[in-house]
Design a protein around this nucleic acid. Sequence first.
DNA 1: TCTGGGGTCCTAGGACCC
DNA 2: TCTGGGGTCCTAGGACCC
Length: 417
Amino acid sequence: MYALVDCNNFFVSCERVFRPSLNNRPVIVLSSNDGCAVARSNEAKALGIKMGAPVFKIQDIVKKHRVECISGNLSFYGDMSQRVMSVLREMSPAIEVYSVDEAFLDLSGIPEHELKPLCQRIRKRVKKWTGIPVSIGIAPTKTLAKAAASVAKKYEEAEGVYLMNSLQARRSVLQRMDVGDVWGVGRKLSERFTYMGLNTAWKLSECDPAHIRELTSVVTQKTVLELQGTPCYAFGEEPDHRKQIISSRSFGEPVKDLKTLKEAVSTFVATGAEKLRSEGTEARAITVYASSSPFKGKYYANSTLITLDNATSDTGVLTKQAMKGVDEIFKQGVGFKKAGICLHDIQHKSAHQADLFSVVDNKRSESLMTAMDKLNSTMGKHTLRFGTSNPNGKWRNLCKHQSPAYTSDWAQLLVVK
DNA sequence: TCTGGGGTCCTAGGACCC
DNA sequence: TCTGGGGTCCTAGGACCC
């Protein structure tokens, strides 16, 4: 059996740990630029605020019901996530971290009558040690565990844990579940299935998997099999490094000049390269992209892929290439609203392919980067940076209701009297 | 006025090989 | 008039996830 542990309204719950006055009130956490609602308390959900709703469209509800709006603080949530995961790691045989607020547990070998009590204990301890409330679903496949967890979250009687261990349980859960709420069924597939009359998870689970594969793809075939109780997604440890690294931002004001666009992109490269070094990896290709707003005016988007001769994590080398990319995609007269970089062809440093003709002095580059990382981690982000970058340039957007980094910045720790 | 950021995987189609 | 058969690798784009 698998368990899925899912943190309830995670970002909001993190804020509530340090600001209990937010309890029992409608609260939303906003994406960068204060653009969208990306987390909602139950009270906010009850007001009809949808996931991803643009803030300007829900202004009336926010004012009328005094919804607390908080500009998200991702580093803080990341730290809280690690705390939750460490409790899970201690209490279960094996854990697979699936996202910032979710983890699968492998419960094989545990007698069935002990599954629920164990998960109850896990839930209590996570709450007590981290302050974060979680819901836990237990089922024979990952897809069913996701469904079970949503039941655990929705119904009070479940007390935060739902065990799906029988055909009856599976049927009653899936019959009440919209097909679009199934893990792996997104907007497009949901539209298609509904059109075909397959509007619930149960109806989808009764389809012939081979037939579904013909209609869609192998991914959806697996989803159907998993709904039937046949595991297709094995429990696995997380991969040791990621395959791509993205760094991007929407701009506060449209950017029309090349210099500002370069300052932004250069800053993104610095962030991406720092991430590479922290994971001990290097990238051999970088994509630079920029676009105007897709919501108004004539849409312009462009990108360019640059392949390097040698894999690197040197901010200087990557910046130089990226700046050429910006020259290529920049267009006079366009108001750019967003830009970013994506690093790919990522590999471990230890797998570095030496180059007979290379002119780069790797030793020098490495000690420079090490020194830079050290300064920036002890003295603050961007203490030492490349001149092309400008983390506080005109492209920066301002968040109005930024919450403190309660646990991840010494300067912002709470003072307890 | 105002619409996030960071990931994964699969597939089709093109370019290439003999 | 008429032009094989069997492969591999790479990439862009689309679908999905949180």
